[in-house]
Nucleic acid binder design. Structure first.
Lengths: 358, 358
DNA sequence: TTGTAAGCGTTATCAC
DNA sequence: GTGATAACGCTTACAA
């Protein structure tokens, strides 16, 4: 069933039927009613390809992750997509998910979508500081929004949870608790979100006059295994840290497991702070102190931004930075040396590797 | 830049250019070379909508989850999508992700995709025993594959990890270890995967002559919180179970946390078995005994199936059941009453609520 | 080997 | 209000 056939049966022209169906004003109420009911009866649905070809709009938005492998096992992904998808669905837009296979350039995938006119707009996640995707799209003036800022951020829509501020918050808290040996388990520093958070970490250290130590910075990656590995390496240092900041909750959970296996009581001798506040964080042992990232809401907002861009909005009006919030649970506390019954001055003392019970 | 313009510049007809670009044999090597290099130079890329309209093929596959909310916080989702996306990408197909918002019928979403001719095929996950999506698609003869079987399974392509067999395996193992009070933390029984696994659980119990107890079956849901809640409820029973089978790893992880909080040592007094073998399972405390689900490979296979269907394959030839594998780690063991130093006969004794240390 | 021309199913621009 | 008719950009018989 197509427009032609439908209008033939109605004894009307395609024009009139099309207008009736698309809610144009210049059609008589009676005609519209006839058309609509007949269309329903015959199960008419317009052919999306034809409509797209004619109108020039695809009513489709693409999502291009940096590398989908990076999301393996990460609960964060479903929530982000759910938020995006929900909003697009409400606008009658489709969501195309571009899965960039290992070894292929995400940039090429973007290009395929843009040049083939397969999408009206794009959403990018986990951008690199120098990101060919961003460069390509920004130069072309193509509508897109990123989760997180990058070097080109002035030229496009973005939504960012202020990662620098977040890590400043987390680091400062640890410092206030009395920690001076604070490590950071990060990931590939090409990621903007890694770079940003790192900056916050270093700034907080600097402000407190704590020297920054190279060996306290790890780039193992995001997963639990990476977190565990990094934690083991850190605790094996001659001067092991008393607190571990982690790039994500999953990383923190891995780190906590490793710490426990080494006999440390997390939240007592060693503090751990995560990032994102995934559901698992609340239920972790001990419950994880972390930065809250309203990821589903972020997905919704990103989708709304791209829809606005497609509707002609100015990217400059679509640049948001959300304030981070530190959710304090039980995985952090004063360092062992600063505990009530401890000897010596609290904050400035060197940390010692505690010999935990059990 | 479009075909018309490109052919004008080349001094060739659109036909010839189209053929040269699409690799048809009846075009001279010299011409093809000229065409290809000029196309590249001018950055020509065919308009997907136009091609779709003409060819009648969209080169797009849709994925319609039952309810995306059910995946919140579930790492399983990213892996499944990655597998699907990878394979589709290799075939130059797009992946449309349909996010069904809360309260809306997934069936309607399917219909929109099918009737608007937005996709050539569909992949469904987490089907219900009576699933309007399946009914609709199967009746229409539309190409689609499901992850898991359902009542209509004879009529469509599917891939299923044998959940019944899997739970038989897991349950039998617990029985062999000496357990007789074995609970099952399940989820909404409308899900086929829940029903199947439940059947395996009951069959194994029946074969061992263990009476099936209603109060040992829970339908709390999949997340960690649900698992924790169910575990607490079960352990509060007058005759608490000595072993907990869980519908997914996340459920099991939640249950283990709750058990520990109650003072039980998981793998000693109480056994727990999960399902899926997500990355977290290996690193859980204790490492979780579970059913291995090669979810990314499943995604790949599902995509390949739909591609085959679109290419004209017979659904009857695309029905696979994969053998489950039990990954034994440390979350299961003999029941407390059957431990070496225990009194009385091993297997048949009533379990007692152990009073754990710490 | 190459070209002509007829669609594909819409929407949009005109007249009437 | 309604109806011809021309795009939209491509593929593909059919001719040459």
């Amino acid at each position: 069933m197509n427009l032609k056939e439908l209008s033939r049966r109605l004894g009307l022209s395609m024009t009139t039927v099309s207008r009736a169906l698309n809610g144009y004003p210049d059609v008589s109420p009676r005609t519209r009613e006839r058309v609509v009911s007949m269309a329903r009866e015959l199960g008419y649905a317009p052919n999306a390809s034809a409509r797209r070809l004619t109108s020039g709009r695809t009513e489709t938005i693409g999502f291009v992750p940096q590398n989908i492998a990076a999301y393996y096992g990460n609960p964060y992904f479903a929530d982000l997509l759910a938020g995006i998808g929900e909003t697009l669905h409400g606008a009658n837009f489709d969501l195309v998910l571009a899965c960039v296979p290992e070894g292929e350039a995400p940039f090429e995938v973007c290009r395929r979508l843009v040049e083939g006119r397969r999408v009206d707009g794009l959403i990018l996640d986990r951008t690199f500081t120098e990101d060919p995707r961003v460069e390509y799209l920004a130069t072309r003036g193509f509508p897109f929004a990123t989760l997180g800022r990058d070097r080109q951020a002035g030229r496009h829509a973005f939504l960012d949870l202020d990662g620098e501020r977040a890590l400043e918050l987390a680091t400062s808290r640890l410092i206030e608790l009395g920690h001076r040996e604070i490590a950071f388990i990060a990931a590939d520093p090409r990621f903007n979100f890694v770079r940003e958070r790192l900056a916050g970490y270093r700034r907080a250290l600097a402000r407190a006059g704590i020297p920054w130590r190279e060996e306290h910075l790890r780039h193992d990656g995001i997963g639990e295994e990476a977190g565990a590995r990094a934690a083991r390496a850190l605790m094996a240092l001659r001067r092991p840290p008393t607190a571990l900041l982690c790039i994500e909750d999953l990383t923190a959970i891995g780190a906590m497991r490793a710490l426990r296996a080494l006999g440390h009581r997390v939240g007592r001798e060693v503090s751990v702070i995560g990032y994102n506040d995934i559901p698992l964080a609340r239920i972790a042992e001990p419950p994880l102190t972390t930065i809250r990232m309203p990821i589903r809401a972020a997905g919704r907002r990103l989708a709304a931004m791209v829809l606005a861009l497609v509707g002609g909005a100015d990217p400059a009006d679509l640049q948001e930075v959300w304030e981070p919030e530190l959710v304090i649970r039980e995985s952090d506390g004063p360092p062992a040396a600063a505990m009530p019954a401890a000897d010596g001055p609290a904050a400035a003392s060197l940390s010692r590797r505690p010999t935990a019970p059990r």
